[in-house]
Amino acid sequence: MSRLLSVENLTISFRTDEGTITPVQDVTFAVDKGRTLGLVGESGSGKSVSTKALMRLLPRTASLGADTKMHYTAKDGQVMRIETLSDRSREIRALRGGEMGMIFQEPMASFSPVYTIGNQIIEAIRLHRPMSKREARAFAIDMLDKVGISNAGARIDQYAHELSGGMRQRAMIAVALSAGPALLIADEPTTALDVTIQAQVLDLMRDLQRELGMGMIFITHDLGVIAQVADDVAVMYLGSIVERGPARDVIRAPKHPYTQGLLAALPSLDTLSKRLTPIPGEIPSPNARPSGCPFHTRCAQKIAGLCDRKIPREVVPEPGRAVRCWLYDENGRAVA
């Protein structure tokens, strides 16, 4: 299995009126070809911002840390160093859409209301594939058909507001896939959909990913969804990855107290009679980041005098797993 994307020490800062905030700090993850990485966390944990950085879609006020490395292996085998590219370079434009496709949470807002769906799919196709207008239109209709939109030949000339929510998200998937990306970034693609539609869209995405052999980064706040789609998972809290590992292992035996809390807060049919256990407190604002471990303010297992003072290192409690928590770092504790 070959590496598609590797991100090391990703740090993102924003200039604001109240000074510099750093919503993403020292994040490291990787995606292999044909595999799905699930990024989990509450809102404000830095999941979306991290993936926007991959496509250099951050606003002008954002800046990347000096140690940030984002290496992507393109379809032609060349390694692109994304952090060095200029926002307006030809390379970044080829990467956007052609190498990485992106799907967003709000399918309605992702389409421009003043152009037909076909116009926006054909635009994506013609930017990345050498096709005439007519060929691109035929290809777009095939694509809409493939994502399960019935009567695609007529739908292509409709506007986003003329479709239902589920159809819109299918159409957005068609836009993202029509340019032939090797990596699909899905930013909470099912959050805004009805539960029954959610399952259909998840199935569709998993099938298409297998068929096209794409890598995928799937962002969600729902660990239940991760169990369905992801091979690997990275749990984010306040801009840091606190736990990484194979999705099945992490869900079955979570190490970090935050992951444990997320799982306990998940409703399940087997435990309907029991009350859910929410994680106490709220996620702190990025400009009031706690000292030490960012989670210590809400952690039931915190070690007083350590967790609130020193940032924990990432340790490997067992092969294939990684966790950023003092509970699993006996050597570190001894030194500290």
């Binding site: 990467l95 956007r96 496709g101 967003f104 992702s110 421009s112 994506a124 930017l127 836009v175 340019a179």
Partner: peptide
């Protein structure tokens, strides 16, 4: 608007993007 970010994310060159999407509205 998200639709502008979405268009940028499919690789539309910036000048064309500005005229086609936000400027028109």
């Amino acid at each position: 608007k998200l639709s502008v970010t979405a268009a940028r994310a499919r690789g539309v060159p910036e000048g064309r993007l500005l005229l086609k999407y936000p400027a028109r509205l």
